[in-house]
């Protein structure tokens, strides 16, 4: 169901990788409202990470309002979490853009040149 892997060599902690992968699937609609997530223990077994790692990832996702845990019944994707994730992504975009503007100004780029860069990046990614 959750068809992803976690790298133990990465500088990004395993729980962060798990969070991002699940978030990505929620925003893409691959994980639907109310869908059951694998238990923390099953996910730990499947991803070959420790149970504390998956517990931490789920706890963070729960704190962010994306999933809920029902004692004895498992973990579920919350209703309308897409909006929450989208809002978070927009916050991230704002932060990245501010950073880009600061560096662009420092490098003496004009608004047109910055916009051009944005357009190039946009076309580079699918």
């Amino acid at each position: 169901m959750l068809n992803f892997a976690v790298s133990l060599q990465s500088s990004i902690p395993a729980y962060e990788q798990i969070k991002e992968q699940i978030k990505k699937r929620i925003i893409s609609g691959e994980l639907k409202d109310g869908e059951t997530l694998p238990s923390m223990r099953m996910l730990a077994r499947d991803l070959k990470v420790s149970i504390i790692t998956t517990t931490r990832a789920y706890a963070d996702l729960e704190n962010e309002g994306l999933i809920s845990t029902v004692q004895g019944r498992g973990c579920f994707v919350n209703a309308l979490p897409k909006e929450i994730v989208r809002k978070q992504y927009i916050n991230d975009i704002d932060a990245s853009l501010s950073n880009a503007v600061i560096k662009g100004k420092a490098a003496g780029l004009s608004l047109a040149e910055l916009l051009q860069k944005l357009e190039d990046k946009f076309n580079e990614c699918d």
Binding site: S39, R41, A44, R45
Partner: peptide, 12 residues
Amino acid sequence: ILDLMREYLLDE
């Protein structure tokens, strides 16, 4: 062996 340990720990 590690897989077995993971299987074992499915029960909390």
